[in-house]
C-alpha cells in the first residue's frame, strides 16, 4: 500500500471532501425544501468512513446506520445513484424505496443502511459468518455510533463475533452524543473500547479525526480479521459538527466545546497536514472544485429524473 505517498494522501483528501461537500449540498437542498424526507449527516466524521473503507474492496461488506451517506461514498457508491435515491427516484441505488436512512448497494458491498440503532451489528456478524462458512477471505465492518453500544443487539452481536472468531470489525464512531444526550449521561466507562474485554476481543481507541491514524488502526483490525484473528472493537473519537437531524441547532452542545471542535475537525486537520507535506492550496482547491462539479452534475441529473409511478410501490416485495 502506498500509504505515505502524496498521491495516496490526496485520494483520501478527495474522498473526505466528497463526503463533506455532498452533505453540505444535501443540507442546502433539504433546508430549501427541494429535497424530500429527513436527513442525518456525517460532517465532522469523514475521516472514519474513509480511513476504514480504504482497506475494503467491493467484495468486503459493511452495515451502516441512520447516518449513512459518508459510509456509502467511502464504500464506493456513486454520488449520482445516491442523489437520485435521496430525491426518491426509481433510478436511485434503492429504486426510491430506501431513501436516506436505507441507502446502500450490495454491488459495492454495502447493505441497505439500518436505521434502528444497533440493528446492523448482528447483520454484519451474519455476513461475516457467511464468509467463514464458505472459507472466503472477505471481511465485514459494522459501523455504529456511541449510542449503539448500549443496545442489546450490539452486545449479542459482539459476543457472537468473538466466540466464533469471525472476520469482522465493530467500528464505534464516538461523536459524544446519542441524538441530543451527552455520552457522560449514558455510559460509565471512560473508553467505549474498554467493553471489548468483556467479549474477549481487542479494543482499540483511536483519534477519529485523524484520517491516517484511523487508516492505520483499521488496517491492523481488518488484517487481524482477514487472517483468522477474529473481531476487533475499534472506537474512533470524533465530534458531530452538524445537527442530529433536520434543522437541529445543537443547543445541547456547549458553545466552547463546539468552537473547539471546529478547529479539530478532520478536514481542517488533514488540510494542515497536506500543506505541511508540500501539497499546494491550489491543488487542494482544485480537488474541491472537481468534487463540487461532480456533485452538481448528480444533483441536476437527479432533479431531472422523472418521479416514479406511485404504483411502483406495490412491485417487488417478494421474489
Amino acid at each position: 500500500m502506498m500509504s505515505n505517498s502524496m498521491e495516496f494522501h490526496l485520494s483520501l483528501y478527495r474522498k473526505m471532501v466528497m463526503i463533506r461537500q455532498f452533505e453540505e449540498r444535501v443540507k442546502y437542498l433539504f433546508l430549501e425544501g427541494i429535497m424530500p424526507g429527513t436527513i442525518h449527516q456525517y460532517q465532522g466524521q469523514e475521516a472514519i468512513a474513509v480511513g476504514v473503507c480504504e482497506h475494503l474492496a467491493d467484495e468486503d461488506v459493511i452495515t451502516s446506520t441512520h447516518r449513512p451517506h459518508g459510509h456509502a461514498i467511502a464504500k464506493g457508491l456513486s454520488v449520482e445513484s445516491m442523489m437520485h435515491e435521496l430525491f426518491g427516484k426509481s433510478t436511485g441505488c434503492c429504486a426510491g424505496k430506501g431513501g436516506s436512512m436505507h441507502i446502500g448497494d450490495m454491488a459495492h458491498g454495502m447493505a441497505p443502511a439500518i436505521a434502528i440503532v444497533g440493528g446492523g451489528a448482528p447483520i454484519a456478524t451474519g455476513m461475516a459468518l457467511a464468509f467463514t462458512m464458505r472459507k472466503q477471505p472477505q471481511v465485514a465492518v459494522a459501523f455504529m455510533g456511541d449510542g449503539a453500544v448500549n443496545e442489546g443487539a450490539v452486545h449479542e452481536a459482539m459476543n457472537m463475533g468473538a466466540i466464533w472468531s469471525l472476520p469482522i470489525v465493530y467500528v464505534v464512531e464516538n461523536n459524544r452524543y446519542s441524538a441530543s444526550t451527552p455520552i457522560a449521561q449514558t455510559t460509565k466507562v471512560a473508553n467505549l473500547a474498554d467493553r471489548a474485554a468483556a467479549y474477549g476481543m481487542p479494543g482499540v481507541t483511536v483519534d477519529g479525526n485523524d484520517v491516517l491514524a484511523v487508516y492505520e488502526a483499521a488496517g491492523e483490525a481488518i488484517h487481524r480479521a482477514r487472517t483468522g484473528g477474529g473481531p476487533t472493537m475499534l472506537e474512533a473519537l470524533t465530534y458531530r459538527i452538524t445537527g442530529h437531524s433536520r434543522r437541529d441547532p445543537c443547543l445541547y452542545q456547549p458553545e466552547e466545546e463546539r468552537k473547539a471542535a471546529l478547529t479539530q475537525e478532520p478536514i481542517v486537520r488533514f488540510t494542515e497536514f497536506l500543506l505541511s507535506q508540500g501539497h499546494t492550496q491550489q491543488a487542494l482547491d482544485g480537488v474541491r472544485d472537481e468534487v463540487n462539479a461532480e456533485i452538481e452534475r448528480a444533483v441536476q441529473s437527479a432533479m431531472a429524473a422523472p418521479d416514479p409511478a406511485p404504483e411502483e410501490a406495490l412491485v417487488g416485495l417478494f421474489v
Binding site: P122, I123, T125, M127, L129, A130, M133, G152, N159
Partner: peptide
C-alpha cells in the same frame, strides 16, 4: 448463545450473502 436478536440478525446477514 441465548441471543435471539443476535441469531436472527446473523441469519439475515448470512442470507443476503447467499446462505
Amino acid at each position: 448463545p441465548i441471543s435471539e436478536a443476535g441469531l436472527f440478525g446473523v441469519a439475515l446477514g448470512s442470507a443476503i450473502m447467499g446462505m
